[in-house]
Each structure stands twice: as structure tokens, then as C-alpha cells.
Design a protein around this nucleic acid. Structure first.
Lengths: 118, 118
DNA sequence: CTATCGTTCACCCAAATGGTTGACTAATAT
DNA sequence: ATATTAGTCAACCATTTGGGTGAACGATAG
């Protein structure tokens, strides 16, 4: 099944997943690490934190679920790679929100000028 | 105490609060509503959702905690107002992350050209 | 004075979250 | 053949989260 059309439902879900994933400090630190060093193995990532490897593995799965990272499984090593492009979903939502906001202010302004100068 | 200098700690906390707050669909819907209609009372907001007033009140408190909305208490009515500017914190983090990413790629590229043409 | 309105507060509940440990699979090294 | 390495899965635990209810409180309306 091709994703020719992402409906509002899915889009909201994607956004929720991304924001929730990015809402955790450890996960943001992982993203930063990947931005700095490029693709890394799960173990390499875990070495930077003093939580268990298992815990890191779970965080990575969350990030993967949100589409913020991808996994290339090469033999027994899993290379985790950042996908910065996905942040665009959040950018888009921000842009829309600000635009709705701006439109209202504009309409309000229009209304006021009409009233004071009919 | 004046906030002349927001340390890394606080900044991370702010970011976490904002992303967590925005990570909930109901709360995002509240933000959209406020963008469209301007300041609204708690009750007006609650009327748009089929969850209890109390639940909405809690959501608003979360948004307030994240600085995404402010409350002007006029007599017994609490006017809730959107603060779009706060989204800039997230923008900034995204920008930083992308910049770290871009810098690494640039360095990598530099390294490769040096190697092939010493 | 009493009723009603707008909100928060204090609990209660189920589900999700972030962490742990221990067992398991599969690949590599000795 | 055995030990080590890389990673996941499953179970468990404490805390947080999103929801609900009922009481309380201050202000305005009758």
C-alpha cells in the first residue's frame, strides 16, 4: 500500500509520536549524539549514558517508531542513524499554528480599520 | 531573582516541558483553538471537547506550566491566551541539531577531498 | 439569603512510561 | 568447544499521565 495521501488522522499521530519521542531528555541527547557522530551502534550510544543498555535500546525503539532514526541491521550490529528530515513535520505544525494566529490578528485589524473609517 | 542567564539545565527543562505539553493531541487542539479565536475562558475551551471541564482545566495548567499559554484572571473568569513566541525554544533546538548535523557532514566532506587530493 | 456560575482542589483509577534484571539468540574470537 | 559480544524480549516496579467525581470557594444574580 502506497502512501499517496496521508490523512489528517495519521498526520496527527505522526506529530504526537515525534513530539512525545523528543519530549524525553535522554532521547534528545541520543539525537544530538547521532547528529555529532553519524550512525552509531546501540552499544556505542549506551556507553554515553549511565542507564542500562536495555533502557537505551527501548529509547531507540521509541525514536524509531517516531521515524526520527532508522536502523540498518548489519549482521549482529544495528547501526542507528538520525533522520533530521522528520523534524519537518513539527516545523509544519508550528508554521500552520502561527499562520492561523496571524490570520486572526489580520482579520481583527481589518475589522478595526473598517469601523474607525467607514 | 532575575533571569539574566538561563543555564543549560533550565533550558533543557523548558524544552522538555514544551515538547511534552505539545505531545498531547487534546492540548494541541486547545492551542489551535486559541490561535483561531484569541483569548478564551476555560469553560469556552471545555465546551469544544467531550471530556470533563476538570480535565480541560488540567490540560491548561500543563500548557501554562510550559509557558505556551498565559492566564489573565479577571474577576472569576480566567482568560487563557496563546503565547506563540514560546515555540521559538523548539525552533532553536531544531536549528542547533540540524547545524551540528550539517557541520559533521561538512567536515566529512573536507576530509574526503583532502584524502583524494593531498 | 439562596442559587448558580466559573474554577480549582483533593482523591481515585487505569494505562503508559522509564527504569531495572534475567533469560535468550546469534555471531565472533580464543 | 567455549567464552564474549551485540542486541532483543519478557517480566517487574515505581512514577507519571489522562481521565473521572465530588466538594469547596468566591462572585454574581434572583
Amino acid at each position: 500500500m502506497l502512501f499517496t495521501h496521508m490523512d489528517e488522522q495519521d498526520s496527527q499521530q505522526r506529530l504526537t509520536d515525534i513530539l512525545k519521542a523528543a519530549g524525553d531528555p535522554t532521547r534528545r541527547a541520543i539525537l544530538t549524539l547521532l547528529a555529532q557522530h553519524g550512525p552509531l551502534r546501540v552499544t556505542d550510544i549506551a556507553a554515553r549514558f549511565d542507564i542500562s543498555l536495555n533502557s537505551v535500546s527501548k529509547h531507540i525503539k521509541v525514536l524509531e517508531g517516531a521515524g526520527l532514526v532508522t536502523r540498518r541491521t548489519e549482521w549482529r550490529e544495528h547501526m542507528i542513524e538520525l533522520r533530521v528530515e522528520e523534524l519537518a513535520h513539527v516545523d509544519r505544525w508550528f508554521r500552520d499554528l502561527r499562520s492561523i494566529w496571524a490570520l486572526r490578528l489580520e482579520a481583527l485589524d481589518h475589522l478595526l480599520t473598517q469601523e474607525t473609517d467607514p
